[in-house]
Computed example of a mutant assay.
Amino acid sequence: MSNSADHGRVRASYDVVAEEYQERVGGELAFKVVDRALLGVVEEAAAGGVVADLGCGPGHVAGWLAGRGAKVVGVDLSPVMVELARREHPGAEFREGDLLRLPAADGEFAAAVALYSVIHLEPAELLPAFAEMRRVLQPSGTLLVAFHLGTEVRRLDEWWGHQVDVDFHFLELETVAGLLAEAGFIVGARLEREAYPEEAQTRRGYLLARRD
């Protein structure tokens, strides 16, 4: 399992790119029709309860959900991202925290989304992260996880002209589904899609699961 220094690399990298990330990615739900549809499923499943956006970045997903009337708590490792999210999306709450130690009470959330946040975890950290997500969800709570499909690890030392040090772990759909099941989730839907022209050209995977 990676140590805190590795998460520090991720934190520092996202701190550095936060403002540009917001400019480039903050409006992406406008063209991500599949994501919007799945987020609508999550919102409906939450039935008025609180939805967690785990690895929320600049808060655009949390803001979209809040704009539809949902109660949302975003969590991100990067304090600069959290500050940016609070500025851009005052209708949601944001907390600084790690996926392995979520700043939330047991069963606090009716549903949760983790969109492209588990890709920065080491393979051995995925199961503990999913167990932690299960902890903060209510019984029968819904979880949506999205990630890049594959087996490669891409390390970036430069991102949009900024010096960074961050790894992107591509994941296989069935591997993640198996880990979710091991952590105590029932996987109800699997979906794959090709990249939209406006985004990084990677194949995408989604898993919709329910806490047992």
Rank of each mutant, 00 (worst) to 15 (best):
Arg211Asn: 11
Leu126Tyr: 01
Phe94Thr: 12
Ala112Phe: 02
Ala5Tyr: 14
Val118Leu: 15
Ala66Arg: 08
Gln201Ala: 15
Arg87Tyr: 00
Leu65Thr: 01
Gly55Ser: 05
Glu88Ala: 11
Leu156Pro: 00
Glu194Gln: 11
Leu208Ile: 12
Pro103Met: 05
Glu43Met: 13
Ala85Asn: 10
Val25Gly: 00
His7Thr: 04
Glu132His: 14
Val61Asp: 04
Gln138Asn: 01
Asp165Cys: 08
Ala177Pro: 07
Val75Leu: 05
Thr202Asp: 13
Ala146Ile: 10
Gly150Met: 07
Phe168Cys: 00
Ala183Pro: 01
Glu43Asn: 06
Ala209Glu: 05
Ala177Asp: 12
Thr202Glu: 12
His7Val: 01
Val72Phe: 10
Leu127Glu: 15
Gln138Arg: 14
Glu83Cys: 12
Asp212Lys: 03
Asp15Leu: 09
Glu83Arg: 09
His169Asn: 01
His120Val: 05
Val42Leu: 14
Pro139Trp: 09
Asp165Glu: 07
Asp53Phe: 08
Glu122Asn: 04
Glu199Tyr: 09
Val187Met: 09
Asp98Ile: 15
Pro197Asn: 11
Ala52Gly: 05
Val153Lys: 02
Phe109Arg: 10
Leu100His: 05
Asp6Lys: 07
Met81Ser: 09
Ala183Trp: 06
Leu137His: 12
Ser140Tyr: 01
Glu158Trp: 03
Ser140Arg: 15
Glu125Phe: 08
Leu77Glu: 05
Val75Ala: 07
Ala85Lys: 04
Val136Pro: 11
Asp6Cys: 05
Ala70Glu: 12
Val34Arg: 03
Asp6Thr: 14
Val113Ile: 13
Ser117His: 03
Glu125Thr: 11
Gly150Ile: 15
Pro79Tyr: 07
Val34Ala: 13
Leu54Tyr: 04
Ala111Glu: 11
Thr151Gln: 05
Arg9Asn: 14
Leu77Asn: 09
Arg135Ala: 11
Leu143His: 01
Val176Ile: 13
Glu198Ser: 09
Val136Ala: 06
Trp160Lys: 14
Gly69Asn: 03
His162Lys: 12
Ala45Arg: 10
Ala189Pro: 01
Val17Tyr: 03
Gly69Tyr: 00
Asp15Met: 11
Val72Glu: 02
Leu102Glu: 10
Ala5Trp: 15
Ser117Thr: 04
Ala104Asn: 06
Ala177Met: 03
Val166Gln: 08
Ser140Ile: 04
Thr175Met: 08
Glu108Phe: 11
Ala46Trp: 07
Glu198Arg: 10
Val73Ser: 12
Leu126Phe: 02
Tyr14Lys: 00
